[in-house]
């Protein structure tokens, strides 16, 4: 039986994937609909993609979103990596338990609460809402995701590597930049990508903390959908999906290749 699919397996597989992907497939198909009516097929056309590129509002929103995502992911990666280092390395400082709990609280915090509390804070300190506040908010909640990813890598990190570097004469700073950082770099990159994606598709927190002139793509799409779904929205979403898919696939292929190369190398090493 093992390795072969039973009928039950096949059925559950089909249903599972249909459940996951049917809506997306429908969306993609209807983005090529010639008709203005979303639910009626009027033939194949790419007119909505063309009109999309003349929709300045959407393009502006996309650009805002992209900038916010890059900046917030970068800042969150720096802060999250620092938090992870502090939590795994300096195990004996006072209040470590409290600190680690607090770093990870936003992981389970309802977004509405995060968004609302940030809004209240920004109002209280009189910070004008706009791109800057959205970026700050995104840093706040994506930092803990980075911290989790990097921390798990640090826990399996062989401390003797750092000791060896220091033993060979490298100061702690040089040790960090020449040994620790390069070794944990893959985790930091995944953390950055995670933060980037989280920022890219966040609607709730952005709605709370955004102000005039800083409408993100998810906010724009949401407000347009409230006036009725247009095929243009389908086209934007399709492009977003394509963007994410290409990203994920590239990462997977690069990883797979590296693994294969590593296996080959190890085989070669064993043969001498």
């Amino acid at each position: 039986m093992q390795g072969k699919l039973s009928r039950f397996n096949i059925v559950s597989l089909v249903f599972g994937f249909a459940f996951l992907y049917l809506p997306i497939v429908l969306l993609v198909i209807y983005s090529f609909n010639a008709s203005r009516l979303v639910t009626v097929w009027g033939g194949f056309s790419t007119r909505w993609y063309v009109s999309l590129f003349s929709n300045q509002q959407l393009i502006d929103a996309a650009w805002v979103t992209f900038r916010i995502a890059v900046i917030s992911a970068t800042v969150a990666t720096v802060l999250g990596t620092m938090a992870a280092l502090a939590l795994t390395r300096y195990t004996r400082f006072r209040g470590r338990f409290l600190f680690s709990g607090m770093v990870f609280a936003p992981l389970v915090m309802p977004e509405v609460i995060t968004g609302l509390s940030l809004l209240l804070l920004f109002v209280a300190i009189g910070l004008d809402r706009g791109m800057f506040t959205v970026t700050l908010a995104h840093v706040t909640f994506s930092m803990c995701f980075v911290a989790v990813v990097v921390q798990s890598r640090l826990l399996s990190f062989d401390r003797s590597l750092e000791e060896a570097a220091m033993d060979l004469g490298a100061t702690p700073t040089r040790t960090f930049f020449h040994v620790t950082l390069p070794v944990i770099m893959p985790a930091i990159v995944s953390g950055w990508m995670l933060a980037f994606t989280l920022s890219l598709d966040d609607l709730v927190i952005a709605s709370f903390t955004s102000g005039p002139g800083a409408t993100t793509l998810p906010m724009r799409i949401y407000s347009q959908v409230r006036l009725g779904v247009t095929p243009e929205i389908n086209a934007v979403c399709t492009l977003l999906i394509a963007f994410v898919t290409v990203g994920v696939l590239t990462a997977a292929i690069v990883n797979k290749r590296r693994d294969l190369q590593r296996q080959r190398d190890e085989h070669a090493a064993l043969r001498g």
Binding site: A164, M166, G169, T171, V179
Partner: peptide, 20 residues
């Protein structure tokens, strides 16, 4: 005297070679 200023060097049990 910190490890990086001591005139001793160590060979680690795990070898601790820098993988990168």
């Amino acid at each position: 005297i910190p490890p990086y200023r001591r005139p001793v060097n160590m060979m680690f049990q795990s070898y601790a070679l820098f993988p990168h």
